[in-house]
């Protein structure tokens, strides 16, 4: 019934797809539900609303973004399918990290600012629901071992509240697969990423100040002394995955393990990241669906996609095509669909776009259009239906990106 009520088309100004050169919401009034929430301003890393420290770096090209996105998606799919989990177990036993372990953070474009230490030092951190361990670059860090960043390096020696995690304790043991031996009785950590990027250093604790009124005492994070790869420019990463070492896990006592975020539509607007605020399932305005888990990949938040409609018409895709579940990931750019579902979506979308000239494919995006010369664009609506009937009717920005249908197949049939 909901699908039948969905709009058949969405019409927007062609200019709305442009990123915008000025921040339209430089200091929004953050939503605040109750006294147990901490709300952080969230922005696109490359845009006029980004912290000045992060915005001067050039954005990666579309081609680079899509290539990095494909590596991340392939990694996630391997982990969820079980192959990645086997690699993780093997890596622990061998005390080495295979190059394929981890993910590519080149597509993590959304940042928040928090302060670390006493006195607090501002850190621009990429938010990632697809990983757990948080880290920042720390002094000492030789130029050959750390990438350049706009903020001064965090110096644990100048923080009165910093403590290195000792070896042998529960906190060090909690690192699990991220553990990397001991040095001078300090607990070491390492995170290696699918493209060969990595961070390595000392596991430590310090005060993480989220807002003027919200701080996490004894926050455990990686103090990175050696980084390489596609990490340039950021101060660190905020892991929001499901494992206990993530920010969400560490603050479960204070915030109930609940969090929410809103990714801005374009770089010239802002969103937010809220820790806490657990509300009833009947919260107004929300379409709610069950949170699922994957035993082989416990980091991920998984929902069950059950159908897709285009132009108000449900696609003819067998339910079994969606049976594997859907990872909700802030670090993947383009939604990946099972091949049968993507083929049906693409066909229906193309049928609704015959008024526009097609354009050359762009990397993994194979359904592109030349929209130059149009003042408005009318797209077939796209709605994603989740278990329990929750329906996400996408806005134009969720349908078309880089001039292309912003979906891709998640692999080959039977893969």
């Amino acid at each position: 019934a909901r699908a039948a009520e969905a709009p058949r088309y969405v019409t927007v100004s062609a200019a709305s797809f442009k990123p915008g050169s000025t921040c339209r919401d430089p200091d929004p009034v953050a939503p605040r539900r109750n006294g147990t929430s901490a709300v952080l301003r969230l922005t696109h890393r490359h845009g006029p609303c980004a912290p000045a420290r992060a915005s001067s770096l050039a954005a990666p090209s579309v081609a680079d973004t899509l290539r990095a996105d494909q590596r991340r998606a392939e990694y996630i799919l391997r982990r969820v399918s079980g192959a990645g989990a086997q690699q993780l177990v093997g890596s622990k036993a061998a005390a080495t990290v295979p190059a394929s372990w981890g993910y590519d953070i080149g597509t993590l474009n959304y940042v928040v600012t928090a302060s670390l230490g006493t006195p607090g030092v501002a850190q621009t951190l990429e938010v990632d629901t697809g990983s757990d361990l948080s880290w920042v670059q720390c002094k000492p860090c030789a130029a050959s071992s750390c990438y350049s960043q706009k903020d001064p390096l965090f110096d644990p020696a100048r923080s009165s509240s910093y403590a290195a995690v000792p070896c042998g304790g529960s906190a060090c043991a909690g690192l699990g697969l991220y553990a990397s031996g001991c040095s001078a009785a300090q607990c070491g950590y390492v995170v290696s990423y699918g493209d060969g990027s990595n961070t390595r250093g000392v596991y430590g604790s310090d005060t993480l100040t989220l807002t003027a009124t919200d701080a996490v005492q004894g926050f455990l994070f990686g103090c990175g002394h050696a980084q390489s790869g596609l990490l340039t420019g950021i101060d660190g990463l905020l892991g929001l995955g499901r494992l206990p070492v993530s920010l969400v896990g560490q603050t479960a006592g204070a915030y109930g393990g609940a969090f929410s975020y809103c990714l801005p539509t374009k770089p010239s607007t802002t969103g937010y990241l809220t820790l806490g605020g657990a509300a009833s399932a009947a919260a107004p305005g929300f379409a709610t669906t069950q949170l699922l888990t994957s035993p082989g990949a416990p980091t991920y938040y998984i929902v069950m996609l059950t159908g897709i409609s285009v132009g108000g018409q449900a696609l003819s895709v067998p339910a079994s095509a969606f049976a594997g579940g859907t990872v909700v990931d802030t670090g993947t750019v383009v939604t990946r669909l099972p091949p049968a579902a993507y083929a049906a979506l693409r066909s229906a979308f193309r049928s609704g776009m015959t008024a526009y000239p097609s354009a050359a494919p762009n990397g993994i995006l194979d359904t592109c259009y030349d929209l130059s010369g149009y003042s408005t664009v009318t797209l077939p609506s796209v709605a994603l239906v989740l278990s329990s009937g929750a329906t996400l009717t996408l806005g134009a920005d969720g349908i078309l990106s880089f001039g292309c249908l912003a979906f891709a197949a998640s692999g080959s049939d039977g893969g």
Binding site: A73, L77, V80, T107, G271, A279, G285, A390, G395, G398
Partner: peptide
């Protein structure tokens, strides 16, 4: 397996509370 990427999450508030995932459109 599918992945819901950040292009499709934009402007939704996504709320995760341990039992469920909620999506609120037009939140930012």
């Amino acid at each position: 397996m599918a992945i819901l990427g950040n292009v499709q999450q934009r402007s939704f508030e996504v709320r995760i509370d341990g039992d469920s995932v909620g999506f609120r459109p037009g939140a930012c």
